[in-house]
Design a protein around this nucleic acid. Structure first.
Lengths: 253, 253
DNA sequence: TCATAACTGCGATCAATGTTCGCTATTACT
DNA sequence: AGTAATAGCGAACATTGATCGCAGTTATGA
C-alpha cells in the first residue's frame, strides 16, 4: 500500500536535485525543518511531529513543507541525521580499536538518551545522510587497523549500532518516560506477580522473587561498558597474540 | 499527544477483565484478530493492517473491533505475541547454555524472516504476552545453570533479542523486499559512489572499491552463528576454567 | 525590454484512518 | 418478567498526510 510515484528516481532527500537559480530564494531550509521537528519531538514526543506542527513551528503553511520534503518519512530522516550530527568525531585513530569504539558508543547512547524518539524511527530507513556517512567513515577509520574483511566491517557497524540501540531501548522500557512511571512500574509488577503465581514460569518467578537487588539501575553505565567491551573484543580479531579467528581478510586479492 | 484515558488501569490487552457471562457470546476472538492481521501484514506489509482491513478480514464492521481491542497498538501487540508463539520451546535444559541459546536464536531469526513487519513494531511496547512470557521462561531456564545475577539475566535477555533484531534488520535492509530490489541497489550504489568520489570519506571509498567479495550474502548464516556464539561466550560467565568475570551473583544473600 | 521558464508559498481540499457514540439485539442473572 | 451487561455496528468526527492549482517572484535569453 505504499505510494508508487511515477518519478522513478530521486526518491531520497539526499539525492534531491539542487535548486535551480530561478524563482524566489526559499525562506526555509531542510536543516531548519530538522531543528524544528527535533524540538517538537524532544518536548512532546514523536507523535507531535506533524506536518502541520512542523510547518507552524517554522512559520509556514503545511503545504509549503512539501517544497523541501517529499514525505513525512523524509522529515524523520532529516531528524535522524541531524541527531547523528551531535557526535564529536574529531579524534583520530589511536591504535586500539576497542577504545575508540567504546567512546563512540558512549556518544551514541547519550544521543539516544537525549532524543528518545530516535527509538521510534526505524533504523536505516533510507540512504545514510551526511552525518551518518561521517559516522560510518569514523568507524571505518577506527577499524582500519584490523584485518577484517570489508563485509565484516560493514556488518560490525550494523551490529554495533543495533546493540547500542538495544541498550537504549532497554533503558527506555525500564524508565517509561513521564509522570506515570510509578503507575506503570506498579502495573508491570502486579501483572508479573500474577503470572508468577500461576505456577507456570517457575524461573520467572524465581527471578522476580526475593528482595530487589541493591545494584540499582543507576549503576548501568559500567554494565554497558563491560558488555560492549566483551562483545567488541569477541568480534574483533586479536591484534597481537593472534588466535585463529574467522572474518579475516584473505592475504591477497 | 497520546490519549490519556480516564479509566486509569487495565490499559493492556493482557490485563483486560474477563468477559462477564451476560450478553451475546462474541463471534470473534483476539486470536482470530491476530491471525487475520498477520495474514494481512505478511502479504501486504504492516501498513495494510488497518482497523478497517482487519475488521473486513474477519467479517466484521470496523467498530466491532473495539470490543476486543482498545487501540490499534493492541492489534500490533497481539500480532507480535502471536508471532512469538511460533517458537518451539519444548527441549529442556541440556547443560551448555550457549547451545540452547543459539538454537533459540535461529528460531527468532526465522520468525523475523517470515514476518518482516515485526521489525516495524517497536520492541517491548507493552507488557509481555503469554508467548513472550514463555520465551522469557525458556531463556531463564536455559540460563539457570549459570551464576549470573537476576539483573544480569534479564539484561542478557534484552541484549539477546536486540542483537537478533539487529541482524534481521541488516538482512532486511540489504534485501529491500520486492521487485525494486535491483533499482534500490543501483540507487544506493550510485549514491555511495558519488559520495566516495567527493574526496571525503576515504575509508568508505576503500570499502566500496574493488570487486564485490565472493562471499555472497547467502553464506550469512554462519556469520550469524559465529558472531552470536562469540558474543554469548563473552557475556556468559565461564562454567569451568573460571576466569574472573563481572556480573556474577554474590555467594550469599 | 520583455516574454518565458522555473521556482516558492500557500489556500483549499481530498482521502485515509483511528476512534467514539448511541442504538438495537442478545444473553444471563434474579 | 424484568434488569443488567454485553456484542455488533451504522454513522459520524477529528486528525493527518498529501495533492492541485493559482498567484507572486526571480533569473534567463531573445
Amino acid at each position: 500500500m505504499t505510494k508508487e510515484s511515477t518519478t522513478g528516481a530521486s526518491r531520497s532527500i539526499w539525492t534531491r536535485p539542487a535548486r535551480s537559480a530561478r524563482g524566489p530564494v526559499p525562506e526555509h531550509s531542510a536543516a531548519e525543518i530538522a531543528r524544528a521537528a527535533i524540538r517538537l519531538a524532544d518536548s512532546h514526543g514523536l507523535s507531535a511531529v506533524t506536518m502541520r506542527a512542523v510547518a507552524a513551528a517554522i512559520g509556514a503553511a503545511p503545504a509549503s513543507l512539501y517544497r523541501y520534503v517529499n514525505t513525512r518519512s523524509d522529515v524523520l530522516e532529516l531528524m535522524a541525521d541531524q541527531a547523528a550530527g551531535e557526535y564529536t568525531l574529531d579524534e583520530p585513530n589511536t591504535g586500539e580499536p576497542v577504545t575508540g569504539l567504546l567512546a563512540l558508543a558512549h556518544q551514541v547512547l547519550a544521543v539516544y538518551r537525549r532524543h528518545p524518539w530516535l527509538l521510534e524511527i526505524p533504523p536505516a530507513a533510507g540512504l545514510p545522510g551526511p552525518n551518518a556517512l561521517a559516522y560510518m567513515e569514523h568507524m571505518l577509520a577506527t577499524l582500519s587497523g584490523t584485518d577484517l574483511s570489508r563485509h565484516a566491517k560493514l556488518e560490525l557497524i550494523g551490529l554495533f549500532g543495533g546493540m547500542i540501540r538495544a541498550f537504549a531501548q532497554m533503558e527506555a522500557d525500564q524508565q517509561r518516560a513521564g509522570q506515570d512511571a510509578a503507575q506503570w512500574q506498579e502495573l508491570v509488577a502486579s501483572y508479573l506477580i500474577e503470572v508468577a503465581a500461576g505456577g507456570q514460569h517457575p524461573h520467572l518467578a524465581a527471578v522476580l522473587a526475593g528482595p530487589p537487588e541493591d545494584d540499582d539501575a543507576l549503576a548501568q553505565e559500567p554494565i554497558f561498558d563491560r558488555a560492549l567491551t566483551r562483545i567488541l573484543a569477541a568480534l574483533l580479531p586479536a591484534q597481537e597474540s593472534g588466535t585463529p579467528q574467522d572474518g579475516r581478510q584473505p592475504p591477497a586479492g
